[in-house]
Design a protein around this nucleic acid. Structure first.
Lengths: 323, 323
DNA sequence: CTGTTAGCGCCTTCAG
DNA sequence: CTGAAGGCGCTAACAG
């Protein structure tokens, strides 16, 4: 009874109750254990009755596997990463794994520390690390299974999105509306994502037609501050490196009396909910929860290779034909 | 060497290297272990040199403590909870603890499952559970240390915010500006937070002057949809149960041609960043990361009692004197 | 199919 | 202050 209330029932208690050996209980409770159906039934029954709960520390110690994953994100306040955390954690739980999350506060140091701290306690890492350089990342992660998200790193499996294609969708949409001069607001140069998105634009737009703005560092403020420069270029449409930057843009444009989409079409990138709340923003949706689920699967599956997920333009109210 | 690269160095390896016993190594590496300074120094040195890393499964098994915390949040996409996760996790890491996060998807079932799944693997829980009823919560958590956040539950320590006082600040601000008729948009009846905020309003405003709207369920849509009713009341100012609802309100008011703050003052609650981005919203700031840090401290500290954190009105551009 | 036997790596008495 | 011994709860051979 006290064992029951304290959750301290062990397989030995279950075994004793049934008059069988602990190993049989262990096997019966393990998915790949070989026991008779009858035995399994009785064990499961007794386990439930006695309030048995697996002690994973003991299991970890003897198997070396922890059934836990580490998730590294630069900042949970960023909804992009919050959704990744949600997805990863849901998927992991469904597969019987727990997830340790480490918010690395945008610091490569902290990232390293977190990996060091958790590496023996997890079966692998899902890593969101847009900033730190490849070498450092590979070095920190050496010896532990890991998959990186929304980034490609030589030597590590990754889950990414078809950013280039997403950019093409955005530009095709604007061109179809009749826009000839389409600007781009680039994101931080150090970020893999920002780089790829920019490359998508550069690959899609003939060099002479390119109108490049930024790079911005602070997302909203950056967009806000680059809006005046945008107006000076004579562009009739703009694609921003992400949604928050697009919102900054829209905000300043409104202050300047420029109507969106009438006077300026604006497209964001990511497809965050927050960007559709007050200002229904046309945006290229980049999978987040789904990508995280894939990352977890990749980590837990034997043959691990990279995955590229599709992106999708979502047209809302910030784009229209030029007037 | 192979031990080193695989991270499989044990205290025995360190002990052997130094020609001492494993217990001495264990003591030297433990904060409260009693060894000579000289020994400790040598052990620390050898441990570092050999790449020793504590196997927490082994430690857990022998001590029963895991140095891990479970964090239950209803939805990480909600920035309120994302910030809590960030704060909890940062604080825990600083104190040498890891955190398992479980996003319970707003489901009491999932909450229960998560607790069952993690209860033997953590030293305690930090619980954000605005919805599920007290009994269920207490029952699920019985036998494990736990502190609840932004909610009070009989029999559990909690970290809450001075909501009533925050509401008073908001109302005082509006009254000082000259508003006489101040409406309130209530949140979901089932939520502890929504209930407390509403009570704050009810306690602060004489019954005959109260203008109660809602309750809303969907935050943004709810605010959006209640805006017309608000206009019909003749109120010149409104306090919304949270920021997102306030944004919904503002959005619909704009569509109706009602200028904020000129024609209607709006105050939100929570003080989320997202609410200051495009629409600088006057709001009552409710601590999130800080509250989470307190919750972690409470859990890790021996004498655990409840804490109430202050709230603070932050005046921005959505409030003004009535015109 | 089931029982016996050894640990997994660490901490914690108990002696010395 | 340090060493030896035992056990935390579970799994994994190895026999039967």
């Amino acid at each position: 009874m006290s064992a029951r209330t304290t959750g301290r029932t062990t397989i030995h208690d279950v075994a004793a109750d049934l008059g069988i050996s602990a190993s049989t209980v262990s096997r019966a409770l393990s998915p790949q254990g070989v026991v008779s159906d009858e035995t399994r039934r009785r064990v499961e029954d007794a386990a439930a009755r006695l309030g048995y709960r697996l002690n994973s520390a003991a299991r970890n110690l003897s198997t070396g596997r922890t059934h836990a994953l580490g998730l590294l994100v630069p900042d949970l306040r960023n909804p992009f990463f919050a959704e990744i955390a949600k997805g990863a954690q849901n998927r992991a739980r469904a597969r019987g794994h727990a997830v340790y999350v480490a918010d690395t506060n945008l610091s490569a140091e902290t990232e390293l520390e977190a990996v060091e701290m958790m590496r023996r306690d997890v079966d692998g890492f899902v890593v969101c690390s847009p900033w730190s350089d490849d070498e450092r990342l590979v070095a920190a992660l050496s010896g532990v299974p890991a998959v990186v998200m929304h980034r490609e790193v030589e030597g590590l499996p990754s889950v990414t999105a078809a950013l280039h294609d997403g950019m093409r969708q955005a530009l095709d949409h604007l061109r179809a509306l009749g826009h000839a001069r389409i600007a781009y607001v680039a994101g931080p140069a150090g970020s893999w994502n920002a780089r790829e998105r920019r490359r998508g634009y550069e690959a899609e737009v003939p060099e002479v037609e390119q109108v490049m703005l930024g790079p911005v560092v602070d997302q909203f403020e950056g967009g806000f501050s680059v809006a005046d420069a945008l107006l000076a270029t004579g562009a009739t449409a703009v694609v921003a490196y992400n949604d928050i930057t697009a919102l900054g843009l829209v905000s300043r444009l409104a202050a300047r009396g420029v109507r969106v989409p009438k006077d300026m079409s604006v497209i964001g990138f990511d497809g965050l909910d927050v960007a559709t709340l007050a200002n229904p923003l046309t945006s290229v949706s980049v999978p987040r929860a789904l990508a995280a689920e894939h990352a977890v699967d990749l980590l837990l599956r034997p043959g691990t290779s990279s995955v590229v997920l599709p992106t999708q333009l979502v047209v809302r109210e910030s784009t229209a034909a030029p007037s």
